[in-house]
Design a protein around this nucleic acid. Sequence first.
DNA 1: ACTCATTTTAGAACAATTATAATTTTATAG
DNA 2: CTATAAAATTATAATTGTTCTAAAATGAGT
Lengths: 137, 137
Amino acid sequence: MKMEDVKQVLKKHDIQPTNQRVIILNYLMNNYDHPSCDKIYDELSAIYPIMNRATIYNSLNLFVEKGILSPIYLNDKCRYEIKKPGHGHFICQECQKITDFSVNLNNSYSLDGYEVLNTDITFRGICPLCLEKKKEE
Amino acid sequence: MKMEDVKQVLKKHDIQPTNQRVIILNYLMNNYDHPSCDKIYDELSAIYPIMNRATIYNSLNLFVEKGILSPIYLNDKCRYEIKKPGHGHFICQECQKITDFSVNLNNSYSLDGYEVLNTDITFRGICPLCLEKKKEE
DNA sequence: ACTCATTTTAGAACAATTATAATTTTATAG
DNA sequence: CTATAAAATTATAATTGTTCTAAAATGAGT
């Protein structure tokens, strides 16, 4: 995905495509790691010295509000991914790695009267790599 | 549930049933509100002056670790409930109220190699009360 | 180019949670 | 029933993720 395309995505969501926002969204569209604001800051500020923490927080909040990103709330810090339906997350308690897996909720779950805006299916446990490490000990 | 029963629950989970722990767990077993540490502190310290914030954090973390409680991670503070399977949460974006609803995940979700320790299904949106309020405006 | 609204920035402020070190409570052995 | 050691609680400081504030910079529309 080219920078010009990222701009189009921003415009389509009624967001002014400023330099910083394009850089941040571009990073997220090419990163499937569910990064935290911290990680985004570290990686981007190494490349673009003109990048402030507050700007990243502002942008991430805006993108979530406008429906481009989904936040993933953990015990410590929030992490982000491009919003797309049909998947859930496995979060490893040991290494904090987040893995996507496909899922479809066909049931309606009798939530009459509630306006459901997004759904979130999260499994927690230990990932294969960490299980292996534990065995070795 | 009597205090004596709460003690038994703690013992069954290999936790020393100290006064504070019994008081905290008793509170949670009679409260279906998914309270935050803050709320637990406010309510309990009004009744029992001998109640420290750190103690409540310590106890909640211990209870989660030992499998008595489930944490519910929100954007700001963590909230807690007695762990029991077969339900998900609806979280209202306006008033932050958490509502339980029953759910059963029968699929296995192809997570071979992962050790899944708990599952969490959360819907977010607007609850009926807040929808009503918004209409009035 | 000029004006006004919007963004970005640096830094302070804030709030939830954890760490520290001293004191108190609890469990255990004599 | 004491003496002793281990564990829990406490007050307080420290840490950390995030938001706020006010000033400077950028961008859009005339």
